[in-house]
Simulated scan of single mutants.
Amino acid sequence: MDEIERFKAEVEANIESLGRDGDLQALSRVWVREISRHKYAYNFRWLGRPAIQFPNDAWAMQEIIWAVRPDLIIETGIAHGGSLVFSASMLALLELCDAAERGETVDPRKPARKVLGIDIDIRAHNRAAIEAHPMASRIEMIQGSSISAEVIGQVKAIAANHSKVLICLDSNHTHEHVLAELEAYAPLTSPGSYCVVFDTLVEDMPADMFPDRPWGPGNNPKTAVHEYLKSHPEFTIDKAIDHKLLISVAPDGYLRRDR
């Protein structure tokens, strides 16, 4: 075994060990519970735009994007646009790396890879900031309900022009809405790619953390994921991601399409 393979095996053993450590798993859930009371996820930006995400999950998404090498990332939920900018920048890096391997240059005005964001309410100030961002040429936005027939039709038409699709679901967090999003968009996930469902951690948090929201324990993205997987064996939860992150908004939410 060469040194690269030896290190890879060591990392895999580390992750397996983390997954077996029940005390550490429980401690991580307590930590997430307590920092969430302080809106911890609101504290981070990507290239100037608020991302409303845990840094650990951003790192996991970077690894997934590099491994999958999608030419289209579909995201439900836009908010301030930080996640769209993050995904666009990762796709830009992919194109730069691919071009460097070929000894070519990239024309940023003609991106081959794009991000499609969907939100029921794209506020004017957020839209203006996203459209003024240096990554804007890689970003397309649709305003409307992610589960309306009209929007789903638009998304499917765009996805049909791409060969490798990655899905991120992060809008309304009720069971009913997320399950409808999964039914609509998970089938667009390319084999070997991922459908990532964010904020599954709601299931593991106290009910009193969501007094002004229509979701909570028993009614959230994680319950939708488990319901969806009952009839969709082509997807599996990538537990290795959960185990290595420990601190994540998406436990059981990293769904890999195996076939």
Results as ranks from 00 to 15, higher is better:
Met1Arg: 03
Met1Trp: 04
Asp2Ile: 12
Glu3Asn: 14
Glu3Pro: 00
Arg6Phe: 04
Lys8Tyr: 07
Ala9Pro: 00
Val11Ala: 10
Glu12Arg: 11
Ile15Gln: 03
Glu16Trp: 07
Glu16Cys: 02
Leu18Asn: 10
Asp21Thr: 01
Asp21Trp: 07
Gly22Thr: 13
Gly22Arg: 15
Ser28Asn: 06
Val30Pro: 00
Trp31Ser: 04
Arg33Cys: 14
Ser36Asp: 14
Arg37Asp: 07
Lys39Met: 07
Ala41Met: 09
Leu47Ala: 15
Arg49Ile: 01
Arg49Cys: 09
Ile52Asn: 12
Ile52Trp: 09
Gln53Lys: 15
Asn56Phe: 02
Asn56His: 08
Val68Arg: 03
Asp71Gly: 08
Asp71Val: 08
Asp71Pro: 05
Ile73Arg: 02
Ala79Leu: 14
His80Pro: 00
His80Trp: 08
Gly81Thr: 06
Ser83Gln: 06
Ser83Val: 01
Leu84Thr: 05
Val85Ser: 05
Ala88Lys: 09
Leu91Arg: 06
Leu93Lys: 11
Leu94Ala: 05
Leu94Gly: 05
Leu96Met: 07
Cys97Glu: 14
Asp98Lys: 06
Asp98Tyr: 01
Ala100Lys: 14
Glu101Ser: 12
Glu101Trp: 02
Glu101Val: 05
Glu104Val: 00
Asp107Gln: 03
Pro108Glu: 15
Lys110Asn: 15
Lys110Leu: 15
Leu116Arg: 10
Leu116Glu: 09
Ile120Val: 15
Asp121Phe: 13
Ala124Gly: 04
Ala124Gln: 15
Arg127Cys: 01
Ile130Trp: 10
Ala132Pro: 02
His133Glu: 12
Ser137Gln: 12
Arg138Lys: 04
Arg138Met: 06
Glu140Asn: 13
Met141Arg: 02
Gln143Ile: 02
Gln143Gly: 04
Ser145Val: 00
Ser146Cys: 11
Ala149Val: 11
Val165Trp: 02
Leu166Val: 01
Leu166Trp: 07
Cys168Gly: 01
Ser171Lys: 00
Leu179Asp: 03
Leu179Thr: 01
Ala180Phe: 05
Ala184His: 05
Tyr185Leu: 02
Ala186Met: 10
Leu188Phe: 11
Thr189Lys: 05
Thr189Gly: 03
Thr189Val: 11
Gly192Leu: 05
Gly192Asp: 04
Ser193Asp: 03
Cys195Trp: 10
Val196Leu: 06
Phe198Asn: 13
Met209Val: 00
Pro211His: 12
Asp212Val: 00
Gly218Ile: 09
Asn219Ala: 09
Asn220Met: 09
Asn220Thr: 03
Pro221Thr: 10
Lys222Arg: 15
Thr223Pro: 02
Thr223Gly: 03
His226Glu: 15
Glu227His: 13
Tyr228Leu: 12
His232Ala: 09
His232Pro: 09
His232Leu: 06
Pro233Arg: 14
Pro233Glu: 14
Glu234Ser: 12
Phe235Met: 11
Lys239Thr: 14
Lys239Cys: 04
Ala240Tyr: 10
Ala240Trp: 09
Ile241Asn: 01
Asp242Val: 06
Lys244Glu: 14
Ile247Ser: 02
Ser248Pro: 06
Ser248Leu: 09
Ala250Gln: 04
Pro251Arg: 05
Arg257Phe: 07
Asp258Leu: 11
Arg259Ala: 12
Arg259Gly: 14
